[in-house]
Each structure stands twice: as C-alpha cells, then as structure tokens.
C-alpha cells in the first residue's frame, strides 16, 4: 500500500468558529487515518484559490468529499469559486481532461431544514437528490463516480448528542471510503448514503449499536 492518503475532504464554512454540525464532522474526519482535510476558508480567506496547488492535491487522492453547510440550496461561495477555478478545461474535462476520471465524489452537507422539509410536499419542495443535481452533474462531466450524499438535517436544532453520533457515522463512512468499500453501483436509487437500508453497506454492526445507544 502507498503512504499517500486516499480521501480528500474539502471543507467550506465561512464561520466555522460558530459551527455546531460541521465542526463535529470536521473533528471526526481528522481522526481518520488516510484522510486529508482541507479547510478552504482557512486556506483562501481572500478567495484567491491556487488552482495548481489544488489540482496537485486532487491528483494524489482517489476520493473527494465536499463537506459544507447548505446555504441557499447550494454551497458556500468559496466552494463555488474553487470549482470555477480548479476544474479547468483540458484538465478536469474537455479534450485531455481526464485528471479526475474514476475518482469517487461524495457530498457531506448539513442543513437547517429537517428531513421532512426536503420532500416534494415539504417546505423546500425538492429532495436533496434533486437539489444536489448541479454538483452531481459537475462531477459527472469530470468523469467522477457519484455517491449519494451524507446529509445532516436540522443541524441547528439537533441535540449535541445526536450530532456527536452523526459525526461518528461520518468517520465510519470516511473509513469505508478510504478502504474502497463504497461502490456507487450498489447505491443506485439511494436518497442518501445514510438512509435506512443503505447504511448497512458501510456501517459495521458494532459501531451501529453505539449510535443506537447514543440516541
């Protein structure tokens, strides 16, 4: 095995000092071996993204995780800037643009609205799968393999203990990702990667009981 870590977590949060959900997820991710965490707002407070450095980093990882709070049904501004600058024509797509081909793409997103709000009859009228289509298509164009999102709903209201449990889940998910145990083909039709029925594909029995206890 190579020394190089496999999973790159791109965290985008403009005010992480006040975060409940993403701060916990971040701590969990940092605890997993073989995961590189890149805190974009810390790297580029002036939005001056270094595309070359980012591309080199991407090239060294087999999976990319976009972790961020859901802002206006989308990502925080810096991640958009990052996408615009890093996913270069001729590098990420277009002729010769094969640098990302075959890499896994996963979104880990926290929302203020709860799960019921993200349904066709809910407050937000669309499902997360639908709302994440732009990013899904972006990764698709770059030849990446899309996994269903990891979603933390109701992030503002959830009790701390629940958030802690979800963070443990997140760590388990990243471990599975690192170990190559997540095959997008097996998740066809999953609304989210942690939906009941699909969890079992990556969550080992003992760690699941831990979460139940926490609830």
């Amino acid at each position: 095995m190579t020394e190089a870590p496999d999973v790159l977590v791109l965290l985008s949060h403009p005010a992480l000092q006040k975060s409940r959900a993403n701060a916990r997820l971040l701590a969990a991710a940092q605890g997993v071996d073989g995961v590189t965490v890149r805190d974009l707002y810390e790297c580029y407070p002036d939005f001056h993204v270094d595309a070359t450095a980012e591309q080199e980093l991407l090239a060294r990882h087999a999976a990319v995780v976009f972790q961020h709070p859901f802002y206006w049904y989308s990502c925080p501004a810096l991640l958009k800037q990052w996408l615009d600058l890093v996913l270069d024509y001729g590098w990420a797509y277009g002729p010769g643009g094969t640098a990302l081909h075959g890499k896994l793409a996963l979104v880990a997103v926290t929302t203020g609205g709860d799960a019921a709000a993200y349904r066709s009859d809910g407050h937000n009228r669309f499902t997360m799968t639908e709302l994440l289509r732009p990013l899904e298509q972006t990764t698709h164009l770059c030849g990446m393999r899309w996994l269903p999102p990891f979603v933390v709903h109701g992030a503002l209201r959830r009790p701390a203990a629940e958030l802690d449990a979800l963070a443990t889940d997140y760590a388990a998910l990243l471990t599975a990702l690192r170990d190559g145990r997540l095959d997008p083909a097996r998740f066809a039709g999953a609304p989210s990667i942690d939906a009941p029925g699909w969890r079992a594909l990556w969550r080992t029995a003992d760690s699941t009981s831990e979460v139940h206890r926490a609830r």
């Binding site: 203020g112 503002l156 209201r157 009790p159 701390a160």
Partner: peptide, 19 residues
C-alpha cells in the same frame, strides 16, 4: 447572527452554543 437561517424557528438551539 450570521448562521441564523430564515428556516430556523426562534429558539432553535435547545442546547445553546455548545460547539
């Protein structure tokens, strides 16, 4: 106030700022 969304009902943080 920056992370207060319009989606959050008042008092949406039962456990206060615990992060």
């Amino acid at each position: 106030r920056s992370d207060d969304g319009a989606w959050d009902p008042p008092g949406s943080r039962p456990d206060g700022r615990d992060a």
